[in-house]
Design a protein around this nucleic acid. Structure first.
Length: 568
RNA sequence: CGGGGAUUAGCGCAACUGGUAGCGCGCACGGUUCGGGAUCGUGAGGCUGCAGGUUCAAAUCCUGUAUCCCCGACCA
C-alpha cells in the first residue's frame, strides 16, 4: 500500500478529550475515528489490526473444537424474555421495532439465540458437546462509554457457546478455552492475570476473567503471591476473630450524643472500630428494603450483596426512607428490634456479613436518636434473614487461599472471559437434550467472550512509547514501513511486493523526511526501511526496528531474508 | 441518573463590558528546500449545534433542547 493512497491520515493534533493513551494514539495515527459516544469507525489501518486479532483468535479457538457460524443481530425480544435476561440487561439493551411493531433487541450477547438454535436440532447426548462461536457486532447501551475503544456501545466480539451433558463435561471445554485464551494473549504479547469473577448479567456460577494490568483499567483485582487472584467483586479474605473468648455481656442502652459517622461512635465510647456494627440500608429494583450489617472495620461489597439477595439493582435508601419507612434514624440504625417498627407492607431483609461471627459484645445505634446499644450479640439480640460474605476486600487483607500473605489490589482491564453458566438459560428456556435412556435432560452451558476492539486498545495501552504505537509483529497492520526519500523507493517497493512482504510505502514527495519519520513512529509498524541517496552511499537500505533506537545499513540482497526471518 | 465542563472551517483553538468571525495545522496552486513534524507567497473553506427570546444590532445576554467530554452511579 502506498501511503499517498491510504484512506485515513495521521494528525498532528488530537482532541484533549482523548486522555487515555490508546485512544489518543489510535486517533492520531489514523486507525479509528469517532462517530458518536462509544461508536467508532475502524479505518483501514485499524481494521487490518482487528482482522489480525480475529485470525489469531479464530486459529486458537478452533483448537477447542469450536465451529464458526453467525446469527442475526436483531433478536426477537420474546427469546430474551423467556430466559428473563431482558430484565438482567435492562437499560443496556437497545430496542428496535419493525414495521409491524414487533419488538427486537440489538444483540448484546447471544446465549439465548444460540440455545434456541441448538434446540432446533433436538440434540441427543451423542451430539454433545456442541461448541460454536461467532464474530459479530454487539450493542450495549452503556451508561458511560470511556477510554476510546476500551468501553464502547458497539463493538465486535468473539462470542463462543458450548453445550454439555453435565458440568464435568463443560469443564473440559472450559479448560480448552482457558488454554486458548492464554495462547491468544501470548500471541498478542499481553501478560494475563486470570481471576475468579462474578457472573454478572450473564448468569451462572463460576467464571473467570482474563485481565491485563493497566492504570486505565476499570476493574480492580486482588492478587496474592501464592497465586490467588480474583476480581474485587468476588474476592474474599480471612476475617480474623477479634474477641470470641469473651463472655456475652448484658445488652444495655446508653445515652450517645454524637455525630452520625463510624468515627463518632468510636470516639464517644472509646471502643475499637471492629466492635461497632456498620448498618447500610439499600433498596432494590423490587422495592425491597435491605439492611446490610457488617463489622465496623469492613465495607459492604454491593456485588456480593446483590448475589446474596438475588437483586439486579441496589441503591442506597434515602434519609427520608430510613425515617419514614424503617422508623429509624440515620446514623443510629440497628438490627436490634428494627423489624417491629417497620410497616409490614414493606418487604424488609436483614443481611449479615459473616464477620459478625468474629466479634462479641458489639455496639452501635438503637434506631433512636442519641441512644446507642452496648454488648449487642448476633442470635441473642438480633437475627439475620441471610448470612454470608458481603465484605469488600481491601489492600493488605489476608489472602483466603494461603491464609498467611496479604492481598494486593491492582487495576486491570478485562481482555476476555469464560463463563460456567450451568442451567441459567436451559432452565427457563427448556434447553434439553435426549439422554441414553431416552429421557430429556437439561443442557449444561458455557460461554466465552473476547472483545476485538478492546483487545486492540489494550495492546496499544501496553505497547507504546512517547512517539507512538509499537505494534507486536503479530498485529502490525503492515510488516514493513518503507520510507522513500529523494524520490526513491518505487522499485524496491515493487520488489518487496513480489516477495509477498506486506509493506506500507511512504511515497509522498511533498513531505519532509522528518514528517515521514514522525508518522512511521506514530503508526508503529515493526520494521522501518529508509531508501535514500544517503543510504545508498552507505551501501544499501537503512533498517530499523520500531522497538529499538539503533538502525543499520543493510545490503538489498540480504534485506529480504532478514525481514522474513524476523517474522518467522 | 446526579455533579461539572464543552459545542465557532476537515482537525486543534481564539474572538474582553453585544457592533456581524480570526489563528495554527491540514487542503489547493506556485517558488526555495529535502535524514527527525522546513519555509515564503497565493487561494479555497464557517446560517458560530439546533429552536425560541431580548436588542437598532447576538458567536457573545436569556430560555429551552440536542450532542460530546470528565467525575460518580451503572455496566463487564
Amino acid at each position: 500500500m502506498k501511503y499517498s493512497q491510504l484512506f485515513g491520515k495521521t494528525s498532528k493534533t488530537v482532541s484533549k478529550d482523548a486522555t487515555v493513551a490508546s485512544h489518543r494514539l489510535l486517533l492520531q495515527a489514523g486507525f479509528i475515528r469517532q462517530l458518536a459516544a462509544g461508536r467508532y469507525t475502524l479505518l483501514p489501518l485499524g481494521l487490518k489490526v482487528c482482522k489480525k486479532i480475529e485470525n489469531i483468535i479464530r486459529e486458537e479457538v478452533e483448537k477447542t473444537g469450536a465451529q464458526e457460524l453467525i446469527v442475526p443481530t436483531l433478536h426477537p425480544i420474546e427469546l430474551w424474555q423467556q430466559a428473563n435476561r431482558d430484565k438482567k440487561f435492562g437499560a443496556a439493551m437497545m430496542m428496535v421495532n419493525d414495521r409491524n411493531q414487533a419488538q427486537f433487541t440489538l444483540g448484546a450477547t447471544a446465549e439465548v439465540i444460540m440455545l434456541d438454535l441448538v434446540k432446533q436440532f433436538a440434540p441427543s447426548y451423542k451430539d454433545l458437546p456442541i461448541n460454536i462461536y461467532q464474530f459479530s457486532q454487539k450493542f450495549r447501551d452503556e451508561a458511560r462509554p470511556s477510554g476510546g475503544l476500551l468501553r464502547t456501545r458497539e463493538f465486535v466480539m468473539k462470542d463462543g457457546y458450548s453445550f454439555h451433558t453435565n458440568e464435568a463435561d463443560l469443564k473440559e471445554t472450559y479448560q480448552k478455552y482457558w488454554d486458548a485464551y492464554l495462547n491468544i494473549a501470548q500471541k498478542l504479547d499481553l501478560k494475563i492475570i486470570v481471576v475468579e469473577s462474578d457472573n454478572g448479567a450473564i448468569g451462572g456460577a463460576v467464571s473467570h476473567e482474563f485481565m491485563v494490568e493497566s492504570e486505565v483499567g476499570e476493574d480492580t483485582i486482588a492478587t496474592c503471591t501464592c497465586g490467588y487472584a480474583a476480581n474485587l467483586e468476588k474476592a474474599s479474605f480471612v476475617k480474623n476473630s477479634i474477641n470470641l473468648d469473651e463472655a456475652e455481656k448484658e445488652l444495655s442502652e446508653v445515652e450517645a450524643v454524637r455525630g452520625t459517622t463510624m468515627e463518632d461512635g468510636v470516639k464517644l465510647h472509646n471502643l475499637p472500630l471492629n466492635l461497632q456494627i456498620k448498618d447500610v440500608v439499600y433498596v432494590d429494583e423490587k422495592g425491597r428494603f435491605i439492611l446490610a450489617i457488617i463489622r465496623g472495620d469492613f465495607m459492604v461489597n454491593e456485588t456480593k450483596l446483590k448475589n446474596l439477595v438475588l437483586s439486579n439493582e441496589l441503591r442506597h435508601a434515602t434519609e427520608e426512607e430510613i425515617i419514614n419507612i424503617l422508623h429509624s434514624v440515620p446514623g443510629f440504625i440497628s438490627p436490634v428490634g428494627i423489624r417491629q417498627n417497620i410497616d409490614p407492607k414493606s418487604e424488609f431483609i436483614i443481611v449479615a456479613d459473616d464477620s459478625l461471627r468474629t466479634v462479641k459484645n458489639c455496639y452501635g445505634g438503637s434506631n433512636k436518636k442519641n441512644i446507642d446499644l452496648l454488648n449487642v450479640n448476633i442470635d441473642r439480640d438480633y437475627k439475620a434473614d441471610l448470612e454470608g460474605d458481603i465484605a469488600a476486600a481491601c489492600e493488605g487483607d489476608i489472602c483466603p487461599q494461603c491464609k498467611s500473605q496479604k492481598l494486593h489490589l491492582i487495576k486491570a482491564v478485562e481482555f476476555g472471559n469464560i463463563f460456567n453458566i450451568g442451567y441459567a438459560y436451559s432452565d427457563p428456556m427448556n434447553g434439553n437434550y435426549t439422554d441414553k435412556d431416552g429421557s430429556l435432560k437439561k443442557l449444561y452451558m458455557g460461554s466465552y467472550g473476547i472483545g476485538i476492539g478492546r483487545a486492540m486498545a489494550i495492546d496499544v495501552e501496553v505497547h507504546h512509547d512517547d512517539t507512538g504505537i509499537v505494534w507486536p509483529k503479530s498485529l502490525a497492520p503492515y510488516q514493513v514501513h518503507l520510507i522513500g526519500l529523494d524520490g526513491m523507493g518505487e522499485d524496491f517497493y515493487q520488489e518487496l511486493l513480489l516477495k509477498n512482504i506486506d509493506v506500507l510505502f511512504d511515497d509522498r514527495d511533498s513531505v519532509s523526511a522528518g514528517a515521514k519519520f514522525a508518522d512511521a513512529d506514530l503508526i508503529g509498524i515493526p520494521i522501518r526501511l529508509v531508501i535514500s541517496k544517503r543510504s545508498q552511499e552507505k551501501g544499501g537500505i537503512e533498517y530499523k526496528l520500531r522497538s529499538q533506537k539503533e538502525s543499520e545499513i543493510i545490503d538489498k540482497k540480504n534485506l529480504i531474508s532478514k525481514i522474513t526471518n524476523y517474522f518467522n
